[in-house]
Amino acid sequence: MSNDQISDRPDDNNFQHVKTWVFDLDNTLYPAENNLFSQVDINITNYVSKLLDLPFDDARKIQKKYLLEHGTTLNGLIHNHSVNAAHYLDSVHDIDFAPIARDLILDQALQNLEGRKVIFTNADTPYAEKVLERIGIAHHFDGIFDIIAADLAPKPEVSTYDRFFDVFAIDPKQSVMFEDMVRNLIPAKQAGMGTVWVNTGSPWGEADYDASVINVETKQLTPWLDEFVNQTANR
């Protein structure tokens, strides 16, 4: 794996003439250390525990098994237990958003980043909007492609990427994707996108690691993007 340095960016082959910048949401647009998604994660475990009448630790094993096998725990629960998606999403996203603070540096970096910006998330739009508002960056994005728009087929389903490209009229070869899970970058890279992996150090983020699908690796988005736009402006 590469170091957390802007110099690890390839020689502009995937970052020149970018028309669309695609951002994952959780643990990408805000630091994983904020532990916002950990609240969702615990809610998911509790949901599985209650649904299947399992102790917390056993429910967590099922939760992560479904995550790796089906892309999201929700998708696994739908396939195996006919869970109602709306009820699940409302339940697991009932959290305290206070840990998310306004990010002025990211706000400015996105302002200076030329090109269209969109959100591509396995969460739902109401939750995504709350996160973006807390960070103070909602106004930079032209749209959100969420799990409902994906017809509940989560990243890394290839068909979902095709649907996403179609909905937003995206040319993958003129786009870059930011994501904290390597497995979700694989279809992006195969489609021709440039890729930035935000490595949070989690085993879920590193699952299916393949260096060939990663153009850039960084521990946090904000400092990398800030340096990127500053270097681009000085060329």
Rank of each mutant, 00 (worst) to 15 (best):
F37H: 09
W224D: 04
H17M: 04
N230D: 08
A123C: 11
S82L: 08
A169N: 09
F56I: 12
D142K: 01
H17Q: 08
L106K: 02
L77Q: 11
R9C: 13
D180G: 10
L110R: 02
A153L: 15
H79L: 14
D24L: 02
S82W: 06
F168C: 05
H70G: 05
N84L: 04
A233S: 06
N43G: 10
F145K: 06
Y47P: 06
V198K: 10
M177F: 14
R102H: 15
Q5F: 09
F23T: 07
D57E: 15
L52M: 14
L152F: 15
Q231N: 12
E114N: 12
R9H: 02
V131Y: 07
F97K: 04
Q63W: 12
Y127T: 00
N43Y: 10
Q220C: 06
L106T: 04
I137C: 00
G205A: 12
A138E: 07
N14Y: 05
I105M: 08
T121F: 01
R183T: 07
D94S: 11
A128C: 06
K50L: 06
D124M: 02
R235W: 08
I148R: 11
R235Y: 09
P172R: 01
F228K: 06
V198L: 15
F56V: 11
F15I: 04
E179R: 00
V48T: 09
E129S: 03
G201L: 10
A123Y: 00
H81G: 09
E33W: 00
E33T: 13
R134Y: 03
T73L: 09
A207P: 00
Q63G: 09
A169E: 05
T200K: 12
V92R: 07
M1T: 05
P99D: 02
N43I: 05
L185I: 15
V158I: 13
I42F: 14
S202G: 01
F97D: 05
I135F: 00
D151M: 09
A191N: 04
V196S: 02
L36Q: 07
K173M: 07
V118F: 14
